[in-house]
């Protein structure tokens, strides 16, 4: 076929924001579950709980990644080198908006770590 559209790459790029969000959720949830099960939630580093610290750092990294996707998309490189055709004018803003939305979602996911204790059971 003459027309290579790089469908998979472009769809993955378009949803990159959401994929980062999913990875973040999976990571923080998994980490916290393990920390509580194996009782290393109490370990400390620089006076902060290691668990909390890691979740915080990972959240910052994820946020950074979201902003990176966002700025690429806004700068018109959303499709990163696919030329300036019509479909990119369509997909670019979608990429950016999804990254923005996901950034908010990542932030929401990360914030509770500052206020909620790691392992206290909820229901009891």
């Amino acid at each position: 076929m003459p027309m290579r559209e790089r469908f998979v790459t472009r769809i993955l790029l378009m949803t990159a924001g959401l994929i980062i969000w999913a990875a973040h959720l999976g990571f923080v949830y998994g980490l916290n579950a393990l920390a509580c099960t194996f009782d290393f939630a109490r370990l400390e580093l620089f006076g902060m709980a290691l668990n909390t610290l890691t979740i915080g750092v990972v959240t910052l990294i994820a946020l950074g990644a979201e902003l990176l996707v966002l700025s690429f998309a806004v700068a018109g490189r959303g499709a990163m080198g696919f030329g300036g055709e019509e479909q990119l004018r369509f997909m670019g803003p979608i990429t950016a908006t999804l990254a923005g939305l996901s950034a908010v979602a990542v932030l929401w996911q990360g914030l509770p770590v500052l206020v909620v204790p790691a392992c206290t059971g909820a229901g009891g």
Partner: peptide
């Protein structure tokens, strides 16, 4: 929510339920 999971784990998901309402 009522199964005794750590509270922090639950709040990750509360965040997601807010996110999905947007």
């Amino acid at each position: 929510f009522t199964t005794g999971l750590p509270q922090l784990s639950l709040s990750f998901f509360s965040a997601a339920s807010m996110a999905v309402s947007i």
